[in-house]
Design a protein around this nucleic acid. Structure first.
Lengths: 134, 134
DNA sequence: TGGTAAGAACGAAACTCTTCGTTTATTATT
DNA sequence: AATAATAAACGAAGAGTTTCGTTCTTACCA
């Protein structure tokens, strides 16, 4: 039997778990095999059982939901991608930047980001600012 | 004897390690005791030996440097705060956002950030954009 | 319906992380 | 110099992560 997963706030996913979540967000509800195929499509080279075990652990943690009525069990993310991304950013914001969003953006702009995307981001922030002051 | 630490690129610090690094960036070169005092000043309640062990491991990993000529050994961060922050953001950018800085900013603006800081960030980006096109 | 193939569960190995007790070494004090 | 105090090293326990081989279950089909 598996441990409980009654948490309404699943924990931060590990690196391997996040990779699986990303596959699930992209694919939608999927079997272990489908997820595994996608993962091994990249550089990863792991056994089917590894993906299965990870998903079982993630289920225990509440990171994914599972439909075990269907025969190849169908897994799906417990929370949408955007919400998890917000959680991860908020987490890093506290852990590494002491809550300073300004410093985080400074660290972000130091990355190699195409000019077009930089413009998009500026536009995005300007629009958001405009909404607040009608 | 300790393991090698000949890496010119230390690995991503764990949560506990990052907390220690933050103390070191703030304090500058410090003894284990100084770091420990700062850590236990907060909610953390750990033994001196725990901090010592962490720092020894971080030394092995190349996350900190050490002056063991001085008697209470003096530790200091191996790389400056800003550079580590850039690394961590770049890492999250890839792992959670597939490299999309736009989505990362979207996730960031969903956080609870004071209006004043939002303005600062917008200004910061606008200035940066101005520099690129003189 | 009995055999086979696919999937799920189990268990464990190897590793990392965090913790701290115990032991050894070094410095300071009488 | 002897003793006390402080620091460093050692080692190990307990939890968590990632890996996969082995076994059990279920569905399919000839």
């Amino acid at each position: 039997m598996s441990a409980r997963q009654g948490k309404q706030s699943p924990p931060r996913p590990t690196d391997a778990e996040l990779e699986i979540l990303r596959a699930l967000w992209r694919l939608g509800p999927s079997s272990v095999r489908q997820v595994h195929e996608v993962l091994t499509g990249g550089a990863k080279q792991t056994a089917f059982n590894t993906t299965l075990k990870l998903l079982q652990i993630m289920y225990d943690k509440g990171l994914v939901h599972r439909d075990d009525a269907r025969r190849p069990h169908v897994y799906r993310p417990a929370i949408p991608e955007e919400r998890m991304q917000q959680r991860l950013v908020g987490d890093l914001l506290e852990r590494a930047f002491g809550g300073s969003a300004r410093k985080l953006v400074a660290a972000l702009t130091a990355q190699d980001i195409p000019q077009e995307e930089r413009d998009e981001i500026r536009r995005l922030l300007d629009e958001e600012a405009g909404e607040d002051t009608p």
